[in-house]
Amino acid sequence: MSPADGAASAVRAEAAASGPGTAVRRPSPLWTLSLFRSELTVTLRRWRTLALLGILAVLPVLIGIAVKIETGGGDGGGGGDGGEGPAFINQITNNGLFLVFTALAATLPFFLPMTVGVVAGDAVAGEASAGTLRYLLVAPAGRTRLLLAKFAALLVFCLLATLVVALSAVLVGAALFPLGDITLLSGVTVPLSEGLLRALAIAVAVAVSLVGLAALGLFVSTLTGSGIAAMSATVGLLITVQIVGAIPQLDVVHPYLFPYHWMSFADLLRAPVPWGDILANAGLQGVYAAVFGSAAWARFTTRDITS
């Protein structure tokens, strides 16, 4: 389904609701929902998006096979108490559910945000380069509603991409390693059912970590009419921020970078859960979303749409 098809279906839905000869009126909530659904459908039906989700699904498979080969299927060593990937890897052979945490820790620094950055960068610029953006605005939704629909679709995609990694890791972990009661990083043992709930909570926390980048990518997408340029710029900014975050001499700016609290999801594997860093991460992503979302709105509502 092309962007033009999605736009056409949304416009037809509003036209049907209005009826022939009806004057243009304020968009109804049903129209807004239809616009959001159209945006999400178009995003998920793009071959590029499906390919990126496929890569995310394969990564836990590669990690699980690598751990299986490395350990020869034997019991792994005891895990550390840190929140990094290696501590999770040490636990995978004892409990396959730890593959979820390892896969998310491995994909969060680059693969997950790169996927979100590509989709976000293409959100507006892709429509402009395809010549469908002006056609979308023929519908009585207005630029603000269209931008909100695109951002909402991006938020859903952030969650979907994270769940793809988590679900793939659960299936691979169950196939290659034993599942059972899980020993948290703090040493407390909880039943498998609670472990699965914590895995779901961690997936949501990781998705929240991508919100700031999604807003940044959407803003970049409003600055150009080239989808490729917007995607490249968004991924380039991601790499630049990661490099800045790795330079000790620039530690004064580290707390203001959107990836600063990304690994805080590991705190959900402790009992009781220390919420400080998790909430700080949510707050930081909210600030990025507010700042760059507002910038995207200011740019998109004032620019000349010529394509």
Rank of each mutant, 00 (worst) to 15 (best):
L171M: 10
L171W: 03
V172D: 00
A174F: 04
A175W: 03
F177Q: 03
F177I: 05
F177M: 06
P178V: 07
L179T: 07
L179Y: 13
G180N: 07
D181I: 02
D181G: 13
I182W: 00
I182M: 15
L185M: 13
L185S: 12
S186C: 06
S186F: 02
S186R: 10
G187I: 04
G187F: 07
V188H: 12
V190A: 07
P191C: 08
P191L: 08
S193V: 06
E194L: 13
G195V: 03
G195S: 07
L196F: 12
L196R: 07
L197V: 12
A199E: 01
L200Y: 02
L200K: 05
I202G: 03
A203G: 10
A203H: 03
A203V: 00
V204D: 02
A205T: 12
A205F: 00
V206W: 05
A207K: 06
A207Y: 01
A207T: 01
V208W: 00
S209C: 02
S209E: 06
L210M: 15
L210P: 01
L210N: 07
V211P: 00
G212H: 07
G212S: 10
L213C: 05
L213V: 03
L213Y: 13
A214T: 10
G217F: 04
L218V: 11
L218E: 05
L218S: 12
F219D: 01
F219W: 15
V220G: 01
V220A: 14
V220F: 11
S221V: 05
S221I: 05
T222Q: 12
T222D: 09
T222Y: 11
T222V: 10
L223M: 13
L223H: 05
T224V: 06
T224N: 10
T224P: 02
G225L: 07
G225Y: 07
S226V: 03
S226I: 04
G227M: 09
A229L: 14
A229S: 13
A230V: 03
M231T: 00
M231G: 00
S232H: 00
S232W: 00
A233W: 00
A233H: 01
T234G: 14
T234M: 10
T234R: 13
V235D: 02
V235P: 11
G236F: 06
G236T: 08
L237T: 10
Q242M: 13
Q242T: 14
Q242D: 12
I243F: 15
I243W: 10
I243E: 05
V244I: 15
V244A: 15
V244N: 11
V244G: 09
V244E: 03
G245M: 09
P248C: 13
Q249T: 13
L250R: 14
V252P: 00
V252W: 12
V253S: 09
V253D: 05
H254D: 04
Y256D: 01
Y256P: 04
L257F: 04
L257I: 02
L257Q: 08
F258I: 08
F258A: 09
W262G: 14
M263W: 11
F265Q: 02
L268R: 08
L269S: 05
L269Q: 14
R270P: 02
R270S: 09
P272T: 12
P272E: 09
P272M: 13
P272Q: 12
P274D: 11
P274F: 05
G276W: 01
L279Y: 05
N281Q: 15
N281E: 07
A282T: 04
G283T: 07
G283Y: 09
G283D: 04
L284V: 04
L284K: 13
L284N: 05
G286N: 06
G286S: 14
V287Y: 03
Y288G: 11
